[in-house]
Design a protein around this nucleic acid. Sequence first.
RNA 1: CGCGGGGUAGAGCAGUUGGCAGCUCGGCGGGCCCAUAACCCGCAGGUCGUGGGUUCGAGUCCCACCCCCGCAACCA
Length: 502
Amino acid sequence: MEKFYITTPIYYSNAEPHIGHSYPTIAADVLARYHRLKGEEVYFLTGLDEHGAKIAEAAQKAGKELQEFCDEIAAKYQFVWDELDISNDDFIRTTSIRHRDGVNKLLVQLKEVGAIYEGEYEGYYCQGCEAFVTEKELVDGLCPIHKKKPQFIHEKNYFFNLKKYLPEIEKAIDDGSLKVIPQIRRKEVLGLFKQDIPDFSISRQSLKWGIPLPWDQNQVAYVWVDALMNYVTALGYGSAEDINFRKFWPAELHLVGKEIIKFHCIFWPAILFAVGLPMPKNIFAHGWFTVDGQKMGKSIGNIIDPHDLIKEFGTDATRYLLLSQFPFGQDGDIKLGNFSIQYNSDLANGIGNLVSRVAAMSEKYFEGSVPAKNDELKLDVSKIWQRYDSAMESFNVYDAISAIKELNALADGYVEKNKPWQLAKSDNVALAKVIYNLLEVIRNLGIMLYPIMPDTATKILISLGQEDFTNYSINDLKEWGRLMPKTVIKKNEALFPRLNIN
RNA sequence: CGCGGGGUAGAGCAGUUGGCAGCUCGGCGGGCCCAUAACCCGCAGGUCGUGGGUUCGAGUCCCACCCCCGCAACCA
């Protein structure tokens, strides 16, 4: 059986989740559901990075114990994923025992293969921050947060011999055995190799909140090293129960934000390569939102909370609206005012209305019983399936949505062209043909919709008497003519009630 | 010379190897009446940031310039 291991970025748990986290998680969920529908064995991982100086700071600011602070954030994440109907198979936290064990194992291995050497880290250290600040961060030679003069200190550190592995990583990206997507990001990463990429420090002496190095308890692992390893520790790497690791590694896809490609496309593959593990197959960097032209951030106060969207539009529509704003992999602007407009045009007037009009006609003309089979739209629909599948295979959720819109438009156009309400008065055979084709389109639409809007899709398919659809693979489901004559159609409540916009 | 992204219709975006400027929403006009005042058709609206250049032909290639936005502080 085909395997599909997909991961979201490991989110930094220094604050509550917002739509910046929801976006890639929903996208990953769509891909995971699509691959499950294909009949593949899927492992979908998301999780939290809970170590490092910034989290220590955030906890202190909140007046909480570190672990307590992390527990609360983690609960909030899990709550949101639940609300968004995210079908993750696992939720890894870097403060968990299983993660710590896996990290220990990997660190020891890195040491054994000679990828780690002892060195000295020097820099400006701020007592207030309990962390190093870079020279650039200093304002008039003072720490910008604590307004104190940092000390220039040296500390013992362990370094990862990155330079030794760089040529292999560059080669892998260059020859496509490690695909970096989209193209723009690939070029960016390849560009990095032309600059100087220094070895990086894998430990911190001055920090307490982290995983102690197995061979030197005075040091904790650098937060990024610890965090990246989640992708294998979640599979049980290094433990006795590593069946998932053996089954699912290497990952088919690491979905990441564009700001962390260096860690994922260079550091992480190098670590894996050093200990002889295969590199992930694909790394996809998604773009960032601006909200009404401005970057989303606390100081601007324009952070969008997924709860607010869910409350206003519902779970499925929220998933749809976030993914349909701009092509996956690019940056794009979100105008909140447009969400309700788009909800009405795509969902209420589009999908919801189509399903409703076709169901109503079936009831009115055929007492809700599916008429005889016909193939008139078979070819058109199969072409749209090709576009849909190839979009999903290249992780392009946005294009898959476009294919769905096309199918919607095809059906609406078909209704106008054939005018069933006129055929009802004159030609019952032609009417039966039209209604059968429309019902089949709706059924296909339901299947295509399922990864994106699982609840809505299920409602549509149940109304067509297809409640058992999850028992079949997508290749069977998209076959034209599965809807059997005489099946009873039940009209739904409005799937997406129209919003009144002032 | 820090690195990178971008400037195409009122808004948000596509434009593959240079070959008649597209999509969605919104606006306007018409049609239809099965449907969630939904649907379908048509129209208007762009000197493709500016100035040069290459070419039979440039949004697309080259050069220069202007403007916006990210990366260093909150932050995916």
